[in-house]
């Protein structure tokens, strides 16, 4: 499983693509694989204030629920409305069409984020 370069990652398996002070957030290929087929995504509301490392929503498979966490502090600008009808996008295209939330970033603790290589190591460790 290739981990895309140029994104920031968390130990809780979220990715974040930054453009200026906004960012798109999703879960990684590894995370969606662990979760299995996603059947429902609970997203935050637009305008919600979020803090880095706190729960932002949940992803459900048939027999599991897992939370996802914000990789940065800020405000929710948009959520992926398509997931309401097509939660499978999280499985099919986790780094693209299956994105979760768009944030306006107010602060980031960079020490809690990982680059692709560092994240890859974590995944390698977890899968063995």
């Amino acid at each position: 499983m290739a981990v895309p370069e140029g994104l920031s990652y968390t130990r809780s398996h979220e990715w974040m693509r930054r453009e200026g002070d906004t960012a798109v957030v999703g879960i990684t290929q590894y995370a969606q694989d662990q979760l299995g087929e996603v059947v429902y995504v609970e997203l935050p509301e637009i305008g919600d204030a979020v803090e880095q490392g706190t729960e932002m929503g949940t992803l459900e498979s048939v027999k599991a629920v897992s939370e996802f966490y914000s990789p940065a502090s800020g405000e929710v600008l948009a959520v992926n409305e398509r997931l309401a009808d097509e939660p499978n996008l999280v499985n099919d295209d986790p780094y693209g069409e299956g994105w979760l939330v768009k944030l306006k970033i107010s602060a980031v603790d960079e020490t809690k984020l990982l680059d692709a290589a560092a994240y890859d190591e974590i995944v390698a460790a977890e899968s063995h």
Binding site: Y40, E60, S61, V62, K63, A64, V65
Partner: peptide, 9 residues
Amino acid sequence: LSTREQHIR
């Protein structure tokens, strides 16, 4: 919709 229930949540 079992994720609402005690055996999962």
